[in-house]
Design a protein around this nucleic acid. Structure first.
Lengths: 250, 250
DNA sequence: CCAAAAGTGTTCCAGGTACACCCATGG
DNA sequence: CCATGGGTGTACCTGGAACACTTTTGG
């Protein structure tokens, strides 16, 4: 960023009292690297945490699963690139998406050096038809994935771990649920993500005490037992009060 | 990463049953971007949180302060690049360093598109002589910095915020202190980073109950009042027990 | 003997954890 | 009427917050 004295190419140093005049020339002198974004897209279905994958179409990774990604186009902000990948593949345009980390190990891509910036996304599987179904695009249970192309397993693990922490501090989980959900579904979600069992009564108390759930007055349908109430997440109230929010503690 | 159908250049698609044979050709087809690393280097001195800066040597940012950074060399892992910057400037080689976030806004560098990966570093000011003193390299009080070159203020703010959260979950702060320190110094550090006042008795209780402090049996010297005991941080014990560590809660 | 900070203990309260019974629905 | 999960309340305990006095040192 700031040019350090290791920038020694002559043309760049058109100095004026020690200052570099041409930022363009300076930048031109930098080595350039291919950049991709990779999206770790989580969904929740059948009480399992899922992730959206395709088959790699590199021969060297034949048969292996790969995250959804693409290179960053010229002058494209990385957030936009990730969002673009997401939209192309899921048809969604109101998706939770956040940058998580950049992976730069030299050997991570068989075609040479490629940096990738990992993004984590959460979406509601039911509300979204998948887009282009090339390469067997579909949802996989996170727990069952053993091997992936590139360093994508490492990236997925990192993002999963990130999600586990993050969901304790922010109510992200609602992005994975339908607009209206029962407390049981909410609890199943937390249990699936955190991979723990939680006490039902304490769980209810905790979420009610946060006071971010709107009772819709509606009930579950088609369940072979007493139907539960359906709630909505009060995004608005959360936004107003999030300064005082310090997270969840199970 | 995984090649998406937006990769349409013909030469790349030397396919074999739909699979891409040459990863090299694929990568060659990607746009390339200059990458830099920028280090937000924190220190602690005179009960203030400090950050190490230089004057930008771009004329357009004349007089403004800049983070320490450099471009990533060919095939250099970013962690290594950040570490290199750190070593060159501080002469240290056992420094806490962690990747924080990648910044990619298109207009962030006046010389054209440059991605930067921000790293956060913590070091003990006293133990380290500064290296090359070019560009008025020196320590600034974090609270006093109003304006910086590039988007470095934003990066610094982000890293400072990151540090505030991080220090609640991991005992990073010890990297900023001398090997032996009094509890008063430790508390001053936390107060400076978190920008709060803490109750001295509760602070002591909390840290003692964590049981990661070694009582050296030594005392402060040259203080105009009752000298405090000096402690060391038990890095070893922390490493062993960190699984059970869930953080600090003030 | 005075100033300044070290060192120490107790009470209170909030919130987490553990736990058991009745209720509503479908079959 | 039975199985299944929904819905509720209480007792206990841990841990954070608030708070005041005595001790040690240098000047």
């Amino acid at each position: 960023m700031n040019n350090d004295s290791s920038v020694i190419q002559q043309p760049v140093r058109t100095k004026n009292g020690g200052l570099i005049k041409s930022a363009e020339k300076l930048v031109t002198s930098y080595p350039r690297v291919p950049i991709t974004v990779d999206c770790v897209i989580f969904g929740f279905d059948e009480n399992e945490l899922k992730i959206l994958l395709i088959r790699s179409d590199l021969e060297i990774f034949k048969g292996q699963w790969s995250l959804l990604g693409d290179f960053a186009a010229d002058n494209e902000e990385l957030d936009d690139a990730a969002y673009r990948v997401l939209c192309e593949r899921t048809g969604m345009d109101d998706v939770y998406l956040e940058q998580v980390r950049t992976f730069s190990k030299p050997g991570r891509h068989p075609g040479g050096r490629v940096l990738t910036v990992a993004y984590c996304s959460l979406l509601n599987i039911e509300q979204h038809k998948l887009g282009k179904m090339d390469n067997e695009l579909h949802w996989h249970s996170v727990q069952n994935i053993k091997e992936m192309a590139f360093d994508h397993k490492e990236i997925m693990d990192y993002c999963y771990n990130w999600l586990q922490k993050r969901i304790m501090e922010h109510p992200l989980g609602f992005n994975l649920l339908p607009e209206k959900f029962s407390l049981r579904e909410l609890q199943n979600l937390y249990e699936a993500i955190l991979n723990v069992k939680l006490d039902r009564r304490n769980f209810r108390k905790k979420f009610f005490s946060m006071d971010f759930l709107i009772d819709t007055g509606e009930y579950e349908d088609d369940v072979p037992h007493r139907p539960g109430r359906l709630y909505q997440f009060n995004f608005q109230k959360y936004e107003l009060n999030k300064r005082r929010w310090t997270g969840i503690d199970f």
